[in-house]
């Protein structure tokens, strides 16, 4: 048998550390989304400000992950799955950073709605938030475990989020037509919905990256590849 190459063990430890950093980043991003939704429900401006501050940690992690990836590429010249892991890690860190930004966008909506009583329940929004967070956390789990089948399941769930976004749009439209004083808060809620929909899209991107990592098959833009 062939002896392991020098530095190989060190390299694998660094890959494990990279995965751990991404997991930390995704837990944090997911937590920010959860906290933003809590702040929204309670119209709690202080909690919203926590989200805005917390996003800086996600930004810092993005820089750290990108640095680690560039170092690994330059120093280890990875091949095959290792190469796919590192390049996908760079894309995923970028997507997670965007998730943090969307959480901040939701938190900023809280400031607009502060002091206004809720005029109706919108369970769709809560369901979207729950689905988007779940997709995100599952996509990252699948990334770490290298589970392409589970990642494909994440892709399917995006349709649910899109459908909720669309039905919420119709509901909010009805409210706005009924009472023009609700146009402001309805637009704010529509922004929340839009941000949640984007978060689910980013989770979808990550799940697609997981399929590429595991199978070496690019399934993005299905029409272009005539595949999925």
């Amino acid at each position: 048998m062939i002896p392991a190459m020098t530095g190989q063990r060190h390299f694998h430890e660094e890959l494990a550390r990279l995965k751990a950093q991404l997991l930390e980043m995704s837990s944090l991003a997911e937590e920010l989304v959860g906290r933003a939704m809590e702040a929204l429900a309670a119209r709690d401006v202080e909690m919203a400000e926590e989200v805005v501050q917390g996003d800086k940690a996600v930004d810092a992690l993005e820089v750290a992950v990108d640095d680690a990836c560039i170092h690994l590429l330059a120093l280890q010249q990875p091949m095959a799955r290792d190469l796919r892991l590192i390049t996908m890690a760079m894309k995923i860190s970028n997507d997670l950073e965007r998730v943090g930004d969307h959480a901040v966008n939701i938190a900023e909506v809280v400031e607009h709605l502060a002091g206004q009583a809720a005029f109706a329940e919108f369970p769709e929004i809560d369901e979207m938030a729950r689905l988007a967070r779940e997709m995100l956390s599952d996509a990252l789990d699948d990334f770490v475990r290298g589970d392409a089948a589970a990642a494909r399941d994440v892709l399917k769930r995006d349709d649910r989020v899109d459908a909720l976004h669309e039905s919420l749009f119709r509901i909010l439209l009805t409210h706005m037509m009924e009472d023009p004083r609700r146009i402001g808060p309805c637009m704010s809620l529509f922004l929340v919905s839009r941000n949640l929909e984007r978060i689910a899209d980013l989770a979808t991107n990550i799940a697609e990256d997981v399929v590429f990592l595991v199978e070496g098959r690019n399934i993005k833009h299905g029409a272009f590849l005539g595949g999925e």
């Binding site: 048998m1 062939i2 392991a4 095959a80």
Partner: peptide
């Protein structure tokens, strides 16, 4: 091939 080019042989 994967094992060889990623240095995971043996």
């Amino acid at each position: 091939t994967e094992a060889y080019i990623t240095g995971r042989f043996g």
